[in-house]
């Protein structure tokens, strides 16, 4: 299937600073694509190129297989990290304006805006000035502004910042709904829990370069440490046990029992360990400890720092 977005050897230079260095990746259609990286890694530069706010110095970008051009503007939605609305304008009017700038007719814009007001239950905000709204309320309006034209490709830059947990869930559900209706979503975020929860693919940028890319599962597998955690009712007698536990976690007493962890060598299977565990003590739980994206992030970006 044609990817939603594909870049080839994308490079962007700002004076002496190289913001993007030879980026080639593709965002599969229908994916939730996480764009990760420390501050200044080049995320905003990349987003601005996809939004056609700026152009690359070299390299190409394709949207649905075609070279990215002005006709694609109305098919892309963008929620910038730095939120901005006209403070002294009415909410309804403002959304109509943004919708029409994206190429909707007056009638379509009006219908879509009304739909969103009903869906998010904010009908009474239509005639309010933005400055009368709380920060969270303004964020909702901003979210509507970025998806009002039903874009196929939605770029969300830190979409949950500024929301309380309840509103955060409302927005997450809306994002998932748009996704289930076929939109491809590009997430730029620092929140690793969001990545784990929502993303199907990730791209990690560091110092203008791509350092990790691919489906979430694949990336995790790459960083697997083959560490397994077992919880048993009684402590294990390691004098007699055939497996060597990890030094930092031996019979640690917890609520459910005693926790021990084991690093399994490549040559052996985890099932063999389970069999031995069952004989040694009552097994409460057994699971592989997968690296969190937080750990992966710190590990990759941290290592990059060490080199420097």
């Amino acid at each position: 299937m044609t990817p939603s977005i594909e870049t080839r050897n994308l490079t962007k230079q700002y004076g002496q600073h190289r913001a993007l260095d030879n980026l080639s990746f593709s965002i599969p259609k229908g994916s939730v694509y996480g764009l990760l990286g420390p501050n200044g890694a080049g995320k905003t530069s990349l987003i601005r190129i996809i939004n056609q706010i700026t152009g690359p110095d070299s390299g190409e970008v394709f949207f649905e297989g075609q070279p990215l051009g002005p006709s694609h503007i109305s098919r892309i939605g963008y929620l910038p990290e730095e939120r901005g609305l006209y403070k002294k304008s009415k909410v309804g009017e403002q959304l109509l304006y943004f919708a029409r700038l994206k190429g909707l007719s007056q009638q379509e814009a009006l219908e879509r805006t009304k739909d969103w007001f009903i869906r998010l239950d904010i009908k009474e905000w239509w005639n309010k000035n933005v400055e009368e709204l709380s920060k969270g309320m303004a964020q909702k309006v901003q979210f509507i502004a970025s998806v009002i034209h039903n874009p196929e490709f939605i770029i969300l830059d830190e979409p949950f910042s500024g929301f309380d947990p309840v509103n955060s869930n409302i927005i997450r559900d809306e994002i998932l709904r748009l996704h289930s209706e076929g939109a491809t979503i590009l997430f730029s975020t620092h929140r690793m829990d969001t990545v784990e929860e929502l993303c199907s693919h990730i791209l990690l940028l560091d110092k203008s370069k791509m350092v990790l890319e691919g489906p979430v599962k694949q990336v995790r597998d790459e960083f697997k440490t083959h560490l397994f955690v077992a919880v048993t009712k009684a402590p294990i007698d390691f004098e007699k046990f055939p497996w060597e536990p990890s030094a930092e976690c031996i019979n640690l007493e917890g609520q459910d029992g005693y926790k021990s962890s084991f690093r399994i060598p490549e040559t052996r299977q985890s099932n063999e360990l389970v069999l031995d565990l069952i004989q040694a003590a009552d097994l409460v739980s057994f699971a592989e400890e997968l690296p969190s994206f937080h750990d992966i992030f710190v590990q990759v970006v941290g290592k990059n720092k060490m080199v420097l």
Partner: peptide, 16 residues
């Protein structure tokens, strides 16, 4: 200046 400081411009220039 208003559009720049309020960052409305980010939305605007992604459309025009």
């Amino acid at each position: 200046m208003e559009e720049k400081t309020s960052r409305v411009v980010e939305i605007l220039v992604s459309s025009v």
